[in-house]
Nucleic acid binder design. Structure first.
Lengths: 243, 243
DNA sequence: TAGTGGTCTAGACCACTTT
DNA sequence: AAGTGGTCTAGACCACTAC
């Protein structure tokens, strides 16, 4: 058999290996959100590759929004500032007027055995536990949606003892547990308001609501949050850009 | 005044100029969808820049899904095959089972003066005309949604004389009018089925429906299609990935 | 002025496809 | 074997920021 005619299956570009190594160091906590990475030249020396190869890795991570590069300043670990949450992770817009960061009011924080949907979304079994956070969210003074967040107890240890859950939970995950949310997958349906919706959202039973089922993934593509939201869309809409 | 301290406002990277030039030639019809572009080396010679600069331009256009690059074969103008439509431009999925390209049944094709929403979406005024295509769409044998497409009469001349509108309208736009859809923006709401929905979708008045208002843009970022869809989501969902 | 990322070039070599 | 895109390197220079 002529070896030269074979396909080289084991091939893995150097810049992808570099990206993985930088991701590993990031996950291990070498650089905190908001801090600067070493310069391209320095990383290249550290890793024993050329500066152009480091650049390709950093560019890929910038495209994934894990890093932020600023010409003349440096390369930084992305933070969960409100503007980023608003633009990257939140697709609900008011039909008219200014966009505001949603205010949250927590109704309940509890621990439970995961139900079927939580198990499937988070890859858990019946022996696991989840935290459940029920909350309402407001756009300004307008009640917008109600939702329940489900979080694996194994990852978010001690969550139940928190006195207050902030509006910006992704920043909390990052600061308290080192969990970096990088990708989100959402499934939408139109549903009818039930009795619970009526009680919490103050709308008649039967009102059409937008139901959003979200799974959030971390740096290692591990599911870390499952969320079910039910949203009134008479004055809001969900925006989606297909590129 | 020290010139060296000023910011260089007029700066425009060469690879962006190259991208624009290639986009211009693409829009002018030099290469049809599915055909191969000249090699990087050849384009570099034509345009008087280095091969690396051409590569950067082609990579950017590939990221925009205008081009498709295949190692060992060449760089091709993206086509509107069904798989691309399904993955890039169509976000509705069955809750279970296989995804199918939606079958369309045209109910009506007419010409009209644009209403307020059409004027705003397509940037038209009261003196313009639009084509309106009303149709039903099926996933297999399952009726999924009803929708109306609105198209500027000035762009899609002669559309009214067509005997049949194919399922894949973006391929039609491309083949017949040289209109290349590259980006789509959608706004979603949950609404209640009205009398017209009942009649066409065969569902009770009051059923929650997912309403999708879509604007499609061409190579020059010009709006070329406005679409309002109303979809039953008891067995389907709308998928959205936030990255 | 020094340091950072961004652009541009040139060339070598690799992986993949086609002939 | 020839031709394509993909990777990797090295170096020069540009644009931007901070000091």
């Amino acid at each position: 058999m002529d070896v030269s005619a074979e396909t080289n299956l084991g091939f893995r570009p150097l810049y992808l290996q570099v990206r993985e190594e930088i991701t590993r160091q990031l996950a291990s906590g070498r650089w905190q959100p908001g801090t600067m990475l070493p310069s391209e030249q320095e990383l290249a020396r550290e890793l024993g590759v050329s500066q152009g190869t480091v650049r390709k890795a950093l560019d890929a991570m910038t495209a994934e929004r894990i890093l932020v590069r600023r010409q003349g300043r440096g390369t930084f670990v992305a933070e969960y500032e409100e503007s980023r949450i608003l633009f990257q992770f939140f697709r609900l817009y008011p039909d008219s007027g200014e966009r505001l960061f949603p205010i949250s009011k927590v109704l309940k924080l509890s621990s439970a055995t995961p139900n079927a949907r939580e198990r499937e979304a988070l890859g858990l079994d019946e022996t696991a536990t989840v935290w459940r956070i029920s909350r309402l969210r407001y756009h300004g003074s307008e009640l917008m949606l109600r939702e329940t967040l489900s979080l694996p107890g194994s990852i978010f240890q001690g969550l139940g003892e928190m006195e207050e859950i902030p509006n910006n939970v992704y920043r909390l995950y990052s600061q308290r547990w080192g969990v970096t949310v990088t990708r989100i997958s959402e499934k939408l349906k139109a549903v009818s308001a039930d009795e619970a919706d009526r009680a919490e959202l103050n709308c008649p039973v039967g009102t059409p609501l937008l139901e959003i089922r979200r799974i959030a993934f971390d740096l290692h593509k591990r599911p870390v949050e499952y969320r079910e939201s039910r949203c009134q869309t008479d004055a809001m809409h969900y925006a989606s850009d297909l590129i």
